[in-house]
C-alpha cells in the first residue's frame, strides 16, 4: 500500500502537499479571483476542532467556529461601545436538534419554565405536501427594543455593545417587559425547581439527588454568582424577568455563546456587526438574510438566512 512505499520521504510529502495546494488553488482561482494567495498562506488544518481555541488565528478557510473565535477575540480588544454583537441563524442548515436550547439551559442553569432559546418546529402544508422548518428564537437584542423603555425601574436596558440585559438586583418582577416583547423572548422565574416532582417516581431518591446536584450550584449569568431561592424576599433571579444574554459571561472570557458552540449543523453564527470583515457582517448583508417581524420596527440584531 501507499504507506509502505520507500520513496515517501519528507521532501516528497512536502512536494505533494504543494502540488495539491496549487491544484486546489487553481480550482478556487477559477471560481473567485484573489483567493489564490490566501489559500497558499493557509496552514494545513489537521482537525476542525482546535485543542486550544484561544490560540488559533482567524482565517476564511477555517471552520466557521474557529473563524468566529478569532473575530470574537479581535472584537473584545475594542472598547465596548465600538462593538455591536449580532447573530445569524441559517434556517436551511438547522436540523431541529434543539442542542442550542439544551446547551443554553445547561450553561445558564435555567429552571423549569425559563427558556432563552427555544426552537420552533413548524410543519407546513398538508399531507403529502408537507415540509418542516425550524426556527431557533433567541432574544433579538433589537436596536429599538420595546421591552426596555417599558421597565418602570430601569432594570432592563441596552448595553453599549447592543446586548439587552436585565439587572436581577433591580427588577421588581412586574412582567411589563414580558408583555412588551413582540417575540416573547422573556420568561419569568416563578421559583420552580427541577426537583419539584423528582421524588415522586420509583427512582425518587436517586432522581432527587441527581437533580439537586445539578440545580444547587450557582449560575454565572452576567459574570456573577446567582443562587436562586424562594421566600418572602426571593433570591434573584427568582421573581425576575429573564432572557438570553448572548452569554455575556462567556464573551468576557473570550468564548462564543453556548448556542453557537453547541450547534451541530454550524447553523448559528455570532460576531461583531460593526466589523465589516466578520462572518456575521458578511452573512447579515446577504440578500437572503431577513429579520423576524420587521413590521414591529424593532430592528433586530438577529438575522435569519432562508
Amino acid at each position: 500500500m501507499n504507506k509502505d512505499r520507500p520513496d515517501r520521504t519528507p521532501e516528497s510529502e512536502e512536494r505533494r502537499a504543494v502540488l495539491g495546494k496549487m491544484a486546489s488553488a487553481t480550482f478556487a482561482g477559477l471560481m473567485l479571483s484573489g483567493v489564490l494567495a490566501h489559500a497558499q498562506d493557509a496552514a494545513p488544518q489537521k482537525t476542525l476542532i482546535p485543542a486550544r481555541p484561544f490560540k488559533v488565528s482567524s482565517d476564511a478557510n477555517q471552520d466557521v467556529l474557529i473563524r468566529m473565535q478569532g473575530e470574537l477575540e479581535r472584537a473584545m480588544q475594542k472598547p465596548i461601545n465600538e462593538r455591536r454583537w449580532g447573530m445569524v441563524i441559517d434556517m436551511r442548515k438547522c436540523i431541529g436538534c434543539h442542542s442550542c436550547t439544551v446547551g443554553c439551559v445547561m450553561e445558564n442553569k435555567l429552571p423549569p419554565g425559563v427558556v432563552y432559546r427555544p426552537v420552533i418546529d413548524e410543519e407546513k402544508g398538508t399531507y403529502p405536501n408537507v415540509t418542516r422548518t425550524f426556527l431557533p428564537r433567541p432574544c433579538m437584542h433589537c436596536e429599538d427594543p420595546p421591552c426596555t423603555p417599558a421597565c418602570p425601574v430601569g432594570a432592563t436596558y441596552k448595553r453599549a455593545d447592543g446586548i439587552v440585559v436585565v439587572d436581577y438586583d433591580v427588577c421588581i418582577g412586574c412582567r411589563y417587559c414580558l408583555t412588551a416583547c413582540p417575540y416573547q423572548a422573556r420568561t419569568f422565574d416563578f421559583g420552580e425547581h427541577w426537583t419539584d416532582n423528582a421524588a415522586k417516581g420509583a427512582d425518587g431518591a436517586l432522581a432527587l439527588t441527581a437533580a439537586r446536584a445539578y440545580q444547587n450550584p450557582p449560575n454565572f449569568e452576567y459574570g456573577k454568582h446567582w443562587e436562586r431561592g424562594e421566600g418572602i424576599i426571593p433570591k434573584s433571579p427568582v421573581g425576575n424577568a429573564r432572557k438570553c444574554t448572548f452569554c455575556t459571561h462567556r464573551l468576557d472570557q473570550g468564548m462564543l455563546p453556548m448556542c453557537v458552540s453547541t450547534c451541530v449543523g454550524r447553523a448559528t453564527f455570532f460576531g461583531d456587526l460593526n466589523d465589516p470583515k466578520s462572518l456575521v457582517s458578511e452573512l447579515a448583508g446577504a440578500p437572503n438574510a431577513s429579520v423576524l417581524k420587521p413590521e414591529a420596527g424593532t430592528h433586530p440584531n438577529v438575522y435569519y438566512l432562508n
Partner: peptide, 17 residues
Amino acid sequence: ELRGLEHAYVDPIGNRL
C-alpha cells in the same frame, strides 16, 4: 406572538410556557 412557540419548549413542572 410567534406561531408554534407554545410547542417549542415546555415546562413539565409548572406549565409556565
